[in-house]
Design a binder for these strands. Structure first.
Lengths: 330, 330
DNA sequence: CTGAAAGCGCTAACAG
DNA sequence: CTGTTAGCGCTTTCAG
């Protein structure tokens, strides 16, 4: 591997000059720049990134923590971040937190040890105070989680509005007895989607029976169980707002097993619009969560703030309705 | 950030000694080791990885190239690699190749520029000669693609056997007129799965009509179109072997649109067992592709070869049948 | 078993 | 616009 020294010798300039042309910025004559570039070319020179990092105190790498590397939710998030970083020639180092406090923390420390220049976090367990402290050590960018003091660094979805719109859509289709199946209530999004449901119901002057609200968890099984609970309670709800698609799938499956036809006897609306929503039968009506786009926004913010020291702003997306086949007009 | 210097001063030893205790290996008195560790603890010392890399010529990072960061196939692959690397405290740097030659190459170069210690590749477009050349620059580990000269560094699935088993399963269920929808034939797995189909047919003494073989592409749309082609040809096949699940989904959808009942009028078997296979209706019978496990194997091999200089061996997995609801006994 | 010293390859003042 | 000169923080001979 040729070093900067060899390049400088071949080009007949100092190492500093070579460094300058590499980093674009500085004032270098076009002539010398050409000479240096030719030399680099000829030697097949590639900068040693460890040396660059050590000298510049910057690694050109951004760390990202997600709960899981697989699954329809985190995949698009990583893809969005990678696309943006890659274009900017920044490396993406990934670690997963498995949705557990200890492991999320470990993932973060692991990445900080590597001196990443910024940290894009999609975490659920780390509390706000800790996030703030973290941000003192390395610029932190949050996706799908907001912390007031860090709001400029946040990209989030208006979940409350999503819950509202979903419920409202059901109401507009003539439903009045609407059940709500929530995710784990310590998760911001679960909480907010539920609030949106409440607002829509209240605004429409519909009662909210606590029996209609099933606190469950964001998984297929969570939806499945919730449906069975609902059945046991013998409520004649005509529609269910499931706080995410996986739960909606569980509900669909359970309904099928109980010979409840969707959407004829029961309407179901989900949330997230994961790509599978299009594969199930009937196809799931749901709220779109623009994961890829949001991830891109967050990554762009990270680049701007970290490498260009530009001020950045909070980015908020709105969930939109995706009409498919699981909601029927009453 | 405290440096090794400060630690050494506090502990009253040389930097070399601190370095030794950090890297475990060397002979250090228990007493001094304790002193050093205490000092590290007290200072909250964390080694600067860039400095380590520069001095040791090793980055403790492994690069991974996948086609996409999203999707049911690559997700588990990344998850498997990350789990293994993380446990070994090695960083995972990810880049996507988007299944295009130029971009795959760019992804690889991008990672090599960072001096990753090894490269785990899940690529399709880079040819064998290039892979070999690459391996001179950095240890390369291949998943789902075999190159004879690199076979010890390879983890792959016996796709031919999978195609054989899938087809055989259909035959055992009384099917004789079996169509095969392949993926892009320049992909090794598409090629091999197709060969497996042929072997099973021949072995059973069944004719293979070229009209029954549709060369398509590994996507939903590919399956959808293939089904329509099959319809146009007015063949009365009773079963279809789809070379991957996404295509099988497309076939299911197309069949539904044409009022062909699965499995009553048509049996379908897929390949990969992506997690969605369990969500569609009817649930897809398919061949299991142990992506997560294979990724783990590959990562373990990478660790062994790169960091422990241990000899490694090729790892081959066998696809197994997952019986669900899309194949019926004739 | 431990210390001294020489870099690893690059960047970043500071001069000129 | 370009060169000189110090390091960045760590590993690794080589002595002792």
């Amino acid at each position: 591997m040729p070093t900067i020294k060899e390049v400088s010798e071949l080009a007949g300039v100092s190492q500093a000059t070579v460094s300058r042309v590499m980093n674009g910025s500085d004032r270098v004559t076009d002539a010398t720049r050409k000479r240096v570039e030719a030399a680099m070319q000829r030697l097949g020179y590639r900068p040693n990134s460890a040396a660059q990092s050590l000298a510049s105190n910057r690694t050109n790498a951004i760390g990202m923590v997600v709960s899981e590397l697989q699954g329809p939710f985190y995949g698009p998030m990583m893809a969005g971040v990678e696309d943006v970083l890659r274009r900017a020639r920044k490396h993406l180092i990934i670690a997963s937190g498995h949705g557990e406090e200890e492991r999320e923390r470990d993932a973060i420390e692991f990445l900080i040890n590597r001196q990443v220049d910024g940290l894009i976090l999609l975490v659920e367990r780390i509390d706000d105070a800790e996030l703030l402290r973290l941000n003192e050590r390395v610029p932190v960018f949050l996706i799908n989680h907001h912390v007031t003091q860090l709001h400029q660094r946040t990209t989030w979805l208006n979940n409350e509005l999503g819950g509202y719109r979903a419920t409202r859509y059901l109401i507009e289709h003539g439903h009045q007895r609407i059940a709500c199946v929530t995710g784990q209530m310590w998760k911001q999004d679960a909480q907010e989607r539920y609030q949106g449901y409440r607002r829509a119901m209240q605004e429409a002057g519909l009662p909210i029976d606590d029996d209609w609200v099933i606190h469950s968890f964001f998984e297929f099984e969570g939806g499945y169980q919730a449906f069975e609970t609902l059945q046991q309670r013998k409520l004649d709800c005509t529609a269910i707002f499931a706080s995410n698609d996986e739960m909606a799938f569980g509900i669909l499956e359970a309904a099928d097993n109980h010979n409840v036809a969707v959407p004829d006897q029961l309407s179901v609306i989900g949330f997230d619009n994961i790509y599978t929503a299009n594969y199930v039968k009937p196809k799931l009506t749901t709220m779109n969560f623009p994961m890829y786009e949001m991830a891109r926004s967050s990554a762009e913010n990270a680049l701007a703030a970290v490498y260009q020291k530009r001020p950045i702003q909070e980015v908020v997306y709105e969930p939109t309705l995706v009409e498919r086949q699981t909601v029927r007009q009453l």
